[in-house]
Design a binder for these strands. Structure first.
Length: 398
DNA sequence: CCTCCACTGGAAACCTAGGCTC
DNA sequence: GAGCCTAGGTTTCCAGTGGAGG
């Protein structure tokens, strides 16, 4: 038996080694890859560049706000320009800090990202925001550092926590001397400004740069440029590129999605030992991306939210907060975890709704009260079981 | 038009884990 | 080590509410 297993494995390795690879440079397809050329974004690059250029002469520059839907090149333009700026700023102590507020989703964690970029040690808990701010400012002034702080997906954070942090950050630019801190805010939401106080708005959006969606033709051209570098010659069919750009183009010109699609499809093709990436690989990738998104979302939920989601999935369709809570109570007792209050569960239901894992709407049943009507999402049921089976505590139920 | 259900969701109090100062 | 502080998560408290049924 042992012999046989070994043979099988050898086969796998042999196939891998002798099989034709279709990807030449996988990094080109990664999300954080910054290409040397960014087609169709010349105008935006010039605008961002002009604002930041002041830094090269040791002057303060204004705060910037970049808007546009997902995958329209906001982040990559910000990173591209700041990277080039860094290359030219040899006489100045310039630091580019980056924080994605969807990932670093508290005020403290965002400031921690900033602190890390300027080599300032800050404990991960225990300090007040005010104290962290003071230390950051002192450090920047003492070391005479110039900081450009890119705040990605800023709309997400402001909707959840308000704009106090932004106010402090944008204002500290005026107060710092020497050194300075300038903010580049990146927002996916075009109506983001409505969430800001006028005082924040005036200092953050000293300059605004809009990123329109890419057209299908533009996406195609971007993909062709990337594939030339990423793939071995002749190892991707024109049909696959066309399909990929058509799919992404139909979804409000999202170039990131198009590149993701290409990357996943390439993995699929390589794994099955194909020597060319064809349209069917793209189709498989579409499904895989959808599935992976849900799996990742489910996996990263904290235990209480997982338990709640499990309770929802075991309650009838169109149930109410009360129904779910009853079920949740019994499940949490069964597996021996702390039972949270209905108030908290009610908030968590809204959070799951926000994550797109369920839908919950407030409805009134007249005499029979007002509650949330909770709907599960059909396609998720299988994924929920699969993922929760891997959870140490929940697995005993499944 | 009024009542009243089953919650919703805001606000404040409370708890815990961790850092700071002395 | 004691006594202070804070962020973030949770509980407690409660006024507010849309609309079916009377």
């Amino acid at each position: 038996m042992k012999q046989k297993n070994e043979e099988i494995l050898d086969n796998v390795f042999d196939k891998f080694l002798t099989g034709k690879t279709i990807i030449k440079d996988p990094t080109v397809l990664n999300n954080d890859y910054i290409p040397n050329k960014l087609p169709f974004r010349e105008k935006q690059i010039v605008s961002v560049g002009q604002s930041l250029a002041l830094i090269l002469k040791g002057n303060k520059c204004s705060n910037l706000l970049l808007y546009g839907k997902t995958g329209t090149g906001k982040t990559v333009v910000a990173r591209y320009v700041t990277k080039k700026l860094l290359e030219r700023a040899d006489s100045i102590k310039l630091t580019i800090a980056y924080s994605n507020t969807r990932i670093s989703n508290t005020e403290y964690r965002i400031l921690l990202d900033l602190a890390n970029s300027i080599n300032l040690d800050i404990p991960f808990t225990g300090l007040s925001i005010g104290e962290v701010f003071k230390r950051l400012s002192t450090h920047i002034a003492q070391k005479k550092i110039f900081v450009v702080f890119i705040l990605d997906e800023i709309d997400y954070f402001v909707k959840k926590y308000g704009d106090n942090l932004l106010y402090d950050l944008t204002r500290s630019n005026e107060n710092l001397n020497p050194g300075f801190l300038s903010v580049i805010g990146i927002s996916n939401d075009l109506n983001f400004k409505e969430y800001l106080n006028p005082r924040v708005l005036s200092s953050l959006s000293e300059e605004e740069i809009v990123f329109p969606p890419y057209s299908a033709a533009e996406i195609k051209s971007i993909l062709e440029q990337r594939t030339n570098v990423a793939f071995e010659q002749e190892s991707i069919s024109q049909g696959a590129i066309n399909l990929c750009s058509a799919l992404a183009g139909s979804e409000h010109g999202d170039a990131r999605r198009a590149v993701d699609l290409l990357r996943i499809a390439a993995e699929v093709a390589e794994r099955e030992g194909a020597n060319r990436l064809e349209e069917n690989h793209i189709r498989i990738a579409v499904q895989k991306i959808e599935r992976d998104k849900i799996y990742i979302a489910l996996k990263s939920l904290p235990l209480q939210q997982k338990t709640l989601l499990l309770s929802i999935s075991e309650t009838k369709q169109n149930c109410t907060t009360g129904d779910v809570y009853e079920n949740y109570e019994s499940i949490s007792k069964k597996i021996g975890i702390e039972t949270l209050t209905q108030r908290r569960i009610s908030s968590m239901i809204s959070e799951l709704d926000l994550l797109g894992l369920i839908t919950a709407n407030v409805v009134s049943h007249g005499r029979y009260g007002r509650t949330k009507k909770i709907k599960k999402i059909k396609n998720h049921e299988h994924a929920i079981k699969e993922v929760f089976k891997q959870d140490q505590i929940l697995s005993i139920l499944l």
